[in-house]
Design a protein around this nucleic acid. Structure first.
Lengths: 153, 153
DNA sequence: GAATATTTGTAGCCATGGCTACAATTTGAC
DNA sequence: GTCAAATTGTAGCCATGGCTACAAATATTC
């Protein structure tokens, strides 16, 4: 007895979908999400250090509007992954790797913001959208952005 | 006895960072991530239904290149959130809400892809980048995208 | 109709990124 | 030097989205 009488015949199934492109696309998205936090954090640390000489857990907590506990845990992970360094109760520092990623991130961020401004997006919205977009823009797209911004200037 | 002798004075701390913009930005990003899965799934269901008349868990598993268990759990959640409907062992259907979101998602996706193509990004990369970007583009930016694509045509 | 293959569900694990509550440490002020 | 305030850490909770392994249901084939 069928639980669902409106079931189709099996012949409708089993066609493999278009191509592996679909899967590859989503693998990329998942990979992006993994590095996203690292990039956001090193960028935030660099931002704080650009203003204050010292970066503390509370600074990042304020920056991201999350609890200090969340920051603590993420900082721990990023330490084991070699982006950050700190001693117990000490300030948060960028490793060489962290600095490199921070610079790359910051550059990418600026490229996206400038591009959005160039196509007429308001500064406020450009900042917000760039924050979300920047982790998902390939180098090819990024260079098109640069090209366009240069041309529009 | 200080664990960290290079500790700064408290006076360096406590300056509230620039503005609440930072936090608002990240709140947005987090909200985006919540709806991202819903949008991806209703869009995927619509895609499958456009080709096959019936959408099953396995179809989505193939689509996203994840296990059927992952799909099952997410479909459950999206059912309780009113995007999808299905009976045990039955096919997956879009609710009214699901259909609406699917259409909106699809439209947004196309807008982003077309825009990337218009600025010279290759079709392959345009598809991949759009997948990541589309959930983070505000309506303001989206309309600038449209405007540009129209003009370039 | 019985056997097999496919599909779906369930149990239970993991990592990430949220949180509150409480403990420990460090700093600043008195 | 002591005490209060600020900061950080720890314990333990939650939801999401991954997974494997195994069980149950459904469909296809013989």
């Amino acid at each position: 007895m069928s639980v669902n009488s409106a079931r189709p015949t099996r012949s409708q199934l089993g066609k493999p979908l278009k191509s592996p492109l679909q899967s590859r696309r989503h693998e990329r998205t998942r990979r992006d999400h993994q590095t996203e936090t690292a990039e956001d954090y090193v960028e935030a640390v660099a931002d704080v250090l650009a203003e204050k000489e010292i970066c503390r857990v509370v600074d990042l907590a304020r920056h991201f509007a999350v609890s200090h506990v969340t920051v603590s845990k993420i900082v721990s992970r990023l330490k084991t992954e070699g982006y950050l360094h700190s001693e117990p109760y000490g300030p948060i520092q960028l490793t060489i790797k962290g600095k490199r990623v921070a610079v790359e991130s910051k550059t990418r961020h600026k490229t996206v913001v400038d591009f959005l401004l160039a196509i007429g997006v308001s500064p406020m919205v450009a900042e917000i959208d760039a924050e979300g977009m920047e982790h998902h823009v390939s180098s090819e797209t990024l260079s098109k952005f640069e090209k366009f911004t240069r041309a529009a200037r």
